[in-house]
Simulated assay, not measured.
Amino acid sequence: MTLAQIHEFVLVCRHGSIAAAARALGKSRGAVSMGISALEDHLGVTLFERSGNQVKPTPVGADLLDDCQRIVSLSQSLEQRCRHHLQGEERMLRIARDDALPEAFWREIVIRLSRRFPNLDLCFGLSTMAELDAMIASGEVDLGIGLRRVSSKPSASETVVLSPVRVMMVVAAGHPLSLLQQVSEQDLRDYPCIGQAHFTPQGLRVTEAASARQVGVSHFELMRDMAAEGIGWTWLPQPLAADDLETGRLVILRHVAAVRMDEYVALKSRYYREGQVTDWLLAQVREYLRRCESA
C-alpha cells in the first residue's frame, strides 16, 4: 500500500470515474486502475462497484474514505512544510507591537498573512514600545514593532528603522489651548498632558511628562479618544490622528515644536533569523507608512 494508491482511491471517489481521476493526476487510465487493484489486493477488500465507466465506493470503501482523505491531507501538509522550510519561511512568528498604526491596518495584515502563509503559527500581542526591549531580551516574542523617539536611548535589541513618522501635539477642537494663536510652555503646563503609561521596575510610569498634571493610559488610541473628549492635550502619530484631524475633531496646537519626527522601528533578538514572512510583513509596513507620509 502506497500514498499514491491512497491518493488515487480518494480521487476516484471524488470524481466518480477512473478516467477522470487519471486526468486529474496526469496518469493513464490503466495506471490508476492498476493502482486501485493493487490497493484492493493489499487490503483484501473490494473498494468500488464498477458499472461501465462509472464507479462508486462499496460500503467498506465509503467507510475508509474519510481516513484515506486524512492521510492524503497530512502527507501534503508534510511536503508543504518541508518546502517552506527549504525556502526560508518561518514556521512560527510571535510579534508584539504598539498601536501607533490604526487597528484596521493590522486586521488586514493578519488576514493577508494567514492567506499568504497558511502554515504559519502567528501570534500578535499589543505592547508599548517602552516594554518591547525586555520582551525581546527574555525571548517572549520574536519581533517587536512600534514608534520610538529619535532621542531615546539605543535599544539592546537589533533595530531596523522602517520609516520616519510625524508625531503631532493635538487637542480637541474648542479646547482652550486650541483657541490660542501661540501656545507657550506655560500654557501646556496649565492643562493635563495625556501620555502613554508603561510598567518599569519602579512601577507604572507615564512616558510624556511635559505638564504639571498627567493622565497616563495604556495605548495611543485611548490617548486620541481622551484628547478628542477635551480631557487634555497629547502627542499622536500622524497615521492614527489623520482621520480626526481631517474631520476637525482634533487640531494641531500652535506651538513652536508641535510637530516632531520619530521612527517606526522593528526590534529583534540578535539570535532571531528572519525569513520570508518577516520580510513580507516589514515590506507591507514600510509601504503603508510611505503612503501615509505622502497623503
Rank of each mutant, 00 (worst) to 15 (best):
R81D: 12
Q69W: 01
L25C: 03
R91V: 13
R14F: 11
L113E: 02
G88T: 13
A21K: 09
D67N: 15
G26V: 07
E103C: 06
N53M: 03
D99E: 15
V72D: 08
I71Q: 13
I95E: 11
D133I: 05
Q69E: 15
A100R: 06
A134I: 02
W106D: 00
S17E: 09
V10I: 10
I18L: 03
S28F: 03
H84K: 12
I36V: 15
D99K: 09
H85I: 12
A38C: 05
V55L: 03
R107A: 07
D99R: 14
E103M: 10
C68Q: 11
A104Y: 01
V12N: 01
D121P: 01
A38S: 14
G16F: 10
L132R: 06
L122E: 01
G16C: 11
D41L: 04
I18A: 03
L65P: 04
W106T: 00
L120E: 00
R115E: 09
G35E: 00
D41N: 07
S114M: 06
L74Q: 14
A22L: 08
G30Y: 07
H85W: 14
Q80A: 15
L86Y: 12
T58V: 05
L93M: 14
R50N: 03
E103A: 14
M135K: 01
R115L: 08
L25S: 03
H15Y: 15
S51F: 02
E40Q: 12
